[in-house]
Simulated scan of single mutants.
Amino acid sequence: MMQNLGATDGQISSGLLAVCFGIGLTTFFLAYTTKAPITIAWSTPGAALIAGAFAAGEGDSELFSHAMGAFLITGVLLIATGLVRPLADLVAKIPGEIAQAMLAGFLLAYCTEPFLNLASNPWLAGPVIAVWLIALWKAPRWAIPAAFVASLVVIAFNFNTEAVDDVILLPHLEFVVPAIDAASIVNIALPLYLVTMASQNLPGLAILKAYDYKLPWKRAMVSTGFMSSVAALFGGLTINLAAISAALSAGSESGVKHLRRWRSAMWSGSTYLVLGLLCSVVVLVISAAPSEVFSTLAGLALVGTFSGSVAGAWKNPAEHSRMPAAVTFIIAASGLTIFGIGAAIWSIAGGLIVRGIILARKQKEEDKIAQEHADHQ
């Protein structure tokens, strides 16, 4: 994606270092000051949006400067969002079952990847799944670490050695002079902001709420917006509240007590700092390894979280709870995108609309019964 924007290899390495350190430091700050498992990530849907917009690969240094200017503006917009109280009040009212259903729908595609890979590439996905199943039987808590080790073994046997030629492995930063104009704001900053809010920040907030954690909205938005703007000066992507990894840290599958799960987020932040220092090596391994191995491992790691989300979404038998949860799950799983807004926000909106209709109908029925009872008296 950054190549399509006209970035050089050095600028790509610099951007990865900047964004990893931004994520790690912001995660440290939020998790430690709130004692909640708040994790930060880069905007994967936003990156996909930008990659699609510049898929032709005709970028140059001027376009890259304008893109970084747009990323800087996106950070400013995130800061402004944290200062607008009505938005925080609105998202805080999302019912828990809708948040859980959204998460389950969002996770479905990831959780199917291991088994789709098993069908298409059994020699790559099969060993990882087999080790996971054996560990799940013998030592459930070590199932994912065992699958990770199996993944490394599979990668070792399928490593593309040609990818290691002429690679500079030392981390470094390169300053980028951002250029700001109306076209880059409209074509990059605004779509990136909308996608980041719809697909990352709002789901991230809802997920923490679903696990009974409170998020300081202002602090989270201002800190992520600030670090996004700083990272843009060195070629980095926009950062935001994590959705998937937030569920991994906040869920009971972590094996940590509820009040201590913030430490899991701290470990996540530490991992990003290490990745920042090893960004060139990480990019090298990922580019030289089969993509099926990583998607298989990620999918297996999220099966437990998916199970818990499904249970939470449908634990309340009431119609005003289960029907909205079902609609939320279906929309989230569909991958729907309208007006640049992803399925996460549309699923929550759909669930809230259905919930409102059902509650309004029930209230009307109760009012009618009450009126009939009053007339008889």
Results as ranks from 00 to 15, higher is better:
residue 20 C to W: 03
residue 327 V to A: 09
residue 225 G to T: 14
residue 179 A to N: 02
residue 166 D to E: 12
residue 72 L to I: 02
residue 215 L to E: 06
residue 179 A to T: 08
residue 354 V to H: 02
residue 280 S to K: 14
residue 240 N to Y: 00
residue 162 E to N: 14
residue 243 A to E: 05
residue 66 H to F: 15
residue 49 L to I: 04
residue 156 A to P: 11
residue 243 A to C: 02
residue 68 M to A: 05
residue 131 V to K: 01
residue 329 F to Q: 07
residue 159 F to L: 15
residue 125 A to S: 15
residue 322 R to F: 07
residue 93 K to V: 10
residue 287 S to D: 11
residue 54 F to N: 00
residue 171 P to N: 13
residue 349 A to F: 15
residue 221 M to H: 07
residue 282 V to H: 05
residue 224 T to W: 10
residue 61 S to T: 14
residue 100 Q to H: 15
residue 243 A to T: 06
residue 96 G to L: 06
residue 124 L to G: 07
residue 172 H to N: 10
residue 300 L to I: 01
residue 259 L to P: 00
residue 184 S to W: 09
residue 273 L to G: 12
residue 276 G to H: 13
residue 84 V to L: 12
residue 236 G to H: 05
residue 102 M to Y: 14
residue 32 Y to Q: 08
residue 221 M to Q: 11
residue 108 L to F: 13
residue 22 G to K: 03
residue 245 S to M: 04
residue 54 F to C: 02
residue 167 V to W: 07
residue 318 A to Q: 04
residue 133 L to S: 02
residue 218 K to P: 05
residue 280 S to C: 12
residue 364 K to R: 15
residue 157 F to Q: 14
residue 365 E to T: 13
residue 311 A to V: 06
residue 361 R to S: 14
residue 301 A to I: 03
residue 164 V to A: 14
residue 10 G to Q: 09
residue 115 F to D: 05
residue 128 V to F: 05
residue 278 L to H: 06
residue 313 A to G: 00
residue 176 V to F: 05
residue 361 R to T: 13
